[in-house]
Nucleic acid binder design. Structure first.
Lengths: 207, 207
DNA sequence: TGTACATCAGTGAACGCGCGTTCACTGATGTAC
DNA sequence: TGTACATCAGTGAACGCGCGTTCACTGATGTAC
């Protein structure tokens, strides 16, 4: 059942894409090679025609995930700063929080990636650096702007993580909305009475 | 080699502590029951005198980790807001980033915990809610203050995650410092030219 | 207080299982004449 | 263009291994008399 040369490259991409999706929804360690291949419509034996080890796939799937995330961000930023902010804001939604597809691999697998091998970490690191550069390019390029971008990125990533862990649905949603609101108006001072939305108020009542 | 009643409780606590430490440094899935017991000075067989399954230990170790983190934060907050901020700031350091001990389990195992069973997630969720409440109590208790706390918590967690993944040491350090600076002066507007420190500048040069 | 017995924390061999990986085999595709 | 052969992507059985878990056994501790 040999495939053509183009067919092989296509199969390899398929495996990477399936793996990237599964790693993001189940974690890396919890996703087996056989499971990935079955979801790609093959048996496990074919895996080693494309990769020398699972770790090689992990590195490629993570890098591909990050690159896709960055490229989508670049496409959004090409449509203007508003489109870029809108693109980022879509990640701070319950749909993305609960979604099993797409997005940045760091959300689910950040811990595992930090313990990955050199190639894996480099691919993820490159994606993160490109993301920061992209944000800086969209602003005035100053050191303060870079700090803004880093702060915003950190807050978004942390917010999604916290939101996924908190049991109270209202609080979980409020976590996303708090960060989303500040992302939309990053220069607004934080402490003076903010125009709290109804959902944030509901969550606050439980505290 | 039976132990006394107090001895048994002590052993159980030891297993939980060893497990909590290992989960935080290696991840949950990557840490085996046998490995935990060996580090606790026993053989794997004794494990089931104390826990009915690994998942039960995961839930208890995660809850204990979170509780210890929250209690340390409470102790710091009892010494005043400055001590509390100082306590939090210590987590935004390269020492903590590289440290294999202590701290909040969400940093390393957030993704795995989000996929854990009900008991595991509840223990972590309770800790996170207590942490938010603690921050709110230290301020004016308003909805805006709660938003501040959530935002800060998210940014800290995200910053440590990003800092652990970024290869460039200067950028990795800058990520921690950017968030630390804002944590120290949370009401300061972000965009206007900030007094960038030398290390942040160095990291910026690579962008 | 001393003796006999019951308990049960910890040991270490063994269990089934699924993991990552290997390999002999297959048959469709690519190539040479 | 048609035929013969080489290639190699995918199959599926098998590998060693370490995992979580079980269990017969041990001997120190706790209890009853």
């Amino acid at each position: 059942m040999r495939k053509s040369k183009e067919g092989k490259e296509e199969t390899r991409r398929l495996i990477v894409d399936v793996a990237a999706r599964m790693f993001k929804s189940q974690g890396i360690g919890a996703t087996g090679v056989g499971e990935i291949m079955a979801n790609a419509g093959m048996t496990h034996g074919a895996f080693y025609r494309h990769f020398s080890s699972k770790e090689e796939l992990v590195a490629e799937a993570s890098a591909t995930s990050m690159a896709a995330f960055v490229e989508a961000a670049e496409a959004a930023s090409a449509a203007g700063p508003e489109a870029f902010v809108k693109y980022l804001q879509d990640y701070l939604t319950t749909e993305y929080r609960d979604g099993k597809l797409g997005g940045c691999p760091v959300v689910q697998t950040g811990g595992e990636l930090a313990l990955g091998d050199q190639a894996t970490r480099q691919g993820v690191s490159d994606g993160l650096e490109r993301l920061i550069e992209l944000g800086v390019e969209l602003t005035d390029g100053s050191a303060a702007a870079k700090a803004d971008v880093i702060f915003t990125m950190s807050a978004m990533l942390g917010a999604i993580t916290v939101s996924r862990l908190v049991s109270d649905p209202a609080l979980s949603k409020a976590v996303l909305e708090v960060v989303k609101r500040r992302l939309a108006a990053p220069t607004e001072p934080a402490t003076p009475a903010a125009p709290a939305k109804s959902k944030a108020k509901r969550a606050t009542a439980s505290a």
